[in-house]
Computed example of a mutant assay.
Amino acid sequence: MSHIPPLDPNVAARKGFRESEERLKRFWKAVDVAEGEGGWAVTLDGRTPKTPAHAPLRLPTEAAARLAAGEWAAQGEFIDPATMPATRLASTAIDRVSQVREAVAEEIAAFAGSDLLCYLADHPTSLAVEQAREWTPWRDWAAIELGVVLEPAEGIRHRAQDPAAIARVRDLALRLDDFALTGLAMAAPLLGSAVLALALQRGLLSGEAAFDLSRLDEAFQERQWGVDAEAAERTAARRAEAVLLDRWFRALS
C-alpha cells in the first residue's frame, strides 16, 4: 500500500484536505513568503497557514514557497484544493513522508524492479525500434551516472532485475530531502519508471519530455487508432502532473 496520497486533483482533494476544508471560504487578502527558522513560510496576511496535520506550511527554498504561495493567491471566494498541487506536495512532505522515509524509498525502488524502460515491445517492429532508440540512452545514463544497471527484455513477461540496482535506487532516494523525495515518489508511478523519475528530479528531462517517453506505446496506439475525448482528458491531466513535478523539482534546486 502506498504511503503517500495520489497527486490526482480529484483524489487529493478528498484525501489531502479535510472534508470541512473543501468549501472553506477565503479568509485572507495578502499572500507572501517569509524566511524563518527551518525555511521559507507561506504567509496569509502575515500568518502561516497549517498543513492538514496542523504543521506550519514551511518549505526549504524561497522558490518553492512562492510556488505554493501563488496557489493561495489564485484562490477565489472558496478554497479549491484541486488547484493547489504544490501545496499538497508540501503538506505531504511535512505530514507524511517525513515520518515514513524508508518505506517511501522502498516504493520508489520497486519501480526499478519493473521499470517501464526495460520492457520493449516484441511487436510491432516499428514500436520496438522507437522504444529502443528513445529508451536505451536513459538506461545507459542510469548505469553510467547513477550506478543503476537494468537489463531490458522483450514482451510483457517480468524480468527480475539485479537486487543491487534496486538497492541503489533506494539509496539515491534516501539522499533526498523530504520535499524532493515526495516529488520523486509521485513521479515514479506517474511515469512507470524510477529512471525517468530520477532524470526528471535531476533536471535532465523536462516534465513534458519525461511524460512523452513514458507513453511511447500509448502514443503509437493513438497514431494507429485515434484517441477519444475521455482518453485525451486523462492524458492531459497526467501531463499536467508531470509539468507540475518539473516545476516542483526546479523550485527546490
Rank of each mutant, 00 (worst) to 15 (best):
V129C: 06
A164C: 05
E218Y: 08
V11F: 10
I108W: 01
E106K: 11
D45N: 03
L190Q: 04
I156Y: 07
V104R: 00
R66K: 15
I108K: 00
D246W: 05
I79E: 00
L24S: 15
F78L: 15
A128L: 03
S253C: 08
A210V: 02
P6V: 06
S2G: 10
A188T: 09
M1H: 15
R168H: 11
L176G: 08
Y119H: 08
W248E: 02
R58M: 03
T125E: 13
R58K: 05
F27D: 08
L176M: 14
W138R: 10
A128G: 06
D178W: 09
G226D: 03
V97S: 09
R66F: 12
A167V: 13
D45Q: 01
T87A: 11
I156W: 10
D171C: 08
D217R: 13
E106D: 11
I144T: 14
W225F: 15
D80M: 14
P60I: 07
K50Q: 07
A187K: 00
A194W: 01
A12Q: 10
E21F: 13
A73K: 12
D212P: 06
G70T: 07
F17V: 14
S214L: 08
L245A: 04
P5Y: 14
D228L: 06
C118P: 07
W40G: 03
A53M: 12
Y119I: 10
G147A: 10
T61Q: 06
E130R: 10
E241I: 12
P5T: 11
A63C: 03
G16V: 10
A64D: 01
W138P: 14
E130W: 09
P189E: 02
L174Y: 02
S91I: 09
S126W: 09
L252K: 06
S114I: 08
T43C: 06
L127S: 00
L184V: 12
Q221M: 12
E154R: 02
A236L: 13
I79D: 00
L204N: 07
P85V: 07
A105Y: 03
E230H: 07
W40H: 03
A69M: 06
P152E: 01
A132L: 12
E222V: 12
F111K: 02
C118W: 04
